[in-house]
Amino acid sequence: MDHKKIRSSLKRTGKSFAQTMPILFGVLLLVSMVLVLVPTSFYGKVFTGNEVLDPLIGAALGSIAAGNPITSYIIGGELIEEGVSLLAVVAFIVAWASVGLIHIPAEGLILGRRFALVRNGVCFLSAIAIAIIVSLVVELV
């Protein structure tokens, strides 16, 4: 193996990492803040019972939430037991993993502002579309 090539590859990766490190640190700090300031009990309190509004609320909540997706499954399971519609819960779970409102500044700085805005917007709408499909299939089966 060519040591020169390895060193050059590590150097290039290190440089790229050094450039993005302030952003990653910033996001980690923001996520930590959201995790402490928004308790999980908050999520159940904002659903209205409205079939049209709740999926939007679910996707919006999932978009601002932060943390491990496993938390979204647990919260989702509890929300269903509390009577929140499956439609809203699916939108919440999908948006949790694919949309990141608090990550948008970082995503924009690294991958481009327009890309970040469009990508998150499309994933937000996809979360609602996926929720409709999953709810229909689960109801039919």
């Binding site: 996001v27 890309f115 990508r119 499309v122």
Partner: peptide, 23 residues
């Protein structure tokens, strides 16, 4: 977390990865 993978995608985009695949 999703943000940990931004540097890799940035790197791949610089090498020619198209936006649709990054998304």
């Amino acid at each position: 977390p999703i943000y940990m993978w931004y540097p890799l995608l940035e790197d791949l985009k610089e090498k020619g990865m198209k936006d649709s695949l990054a998304a």
